[in-house]
Write a protein that binds this DNA or RNA. Structure first.
Lengths: 88, 88
DNA sequence: TTAATATTTAGCTTATCATCTAAATATAAG
DNA sequence: CTTATATTTAGATGATAAGCTAAATATTAA
């Protein structure tokens, strides 16, 4: 949970998640969307993976990343608990 | 929005928000809940304040902090947009 | 005005993090 | 088996951030 919040604190990683929300993408296709080196994007993807916000699967030469909404829902649960009637 | 996500990435700050969800507290009362120096807590409070996740108001010698749920709801909106049907 | 209490500001240190280049690994194709 | 493509790993660097102590500010009370 803490890993998820930390992962979400970076704008590049949030944008990656938004891209993956639309459709699964290879690491290279993701990197193409940013003015950041591929190794740096790979690093971001690894952080997202450790937080279990994304999953990856090799398909031939490519590694395809997809979003994992389960952890996202857990994080949203935190917000829901927070927004519940004040003082509960 | 980015400030909010960054502020939420620290577990101490998330715990502060949970305390303030229960009731408004002075800076000192908040600091008493942690094994962290008062100046450090003050620093965390300032980050929460800049992200507009909390508000403060002086009451005599004390400064009372309260939670601002508006920004929290905005952050939750981000999650909702994320969790909507994949590919929309 | 002086002393006590509450909180913040300043300055420093250490750790974490985002980024880069270069090199390594893995798969596919000639 | 050699080359090309895709991605990651390694190692380094500069920036950001969390923590501390000491000092400053603000309010209250004597």
């Amino acid at each position: 949970m803490n890993d998820a919040f930390k992962a979400l604190s970076d704008p590049t990683r949030r944008k990656i998640l938004q891209l993956l929300k639309e459709k699964d993408l290879s690491a290279g296709d993701i990197a193409d969307q940013f003015d950041i080196s591929k190794p740096s994007i790979s690093h971001h993807l690894n952080i997202l993976k450790q937080a279990r916000l994304v999953q990856d699967e090799r398909q031939g030469q490519n590694i395809i990343y997809s979003i994992n909404l389960t952890v996202m829902q857990e994080a949203m649960g935190w917000f829901l608990g927070m927004i519940g009637t004040k003082g509960d």
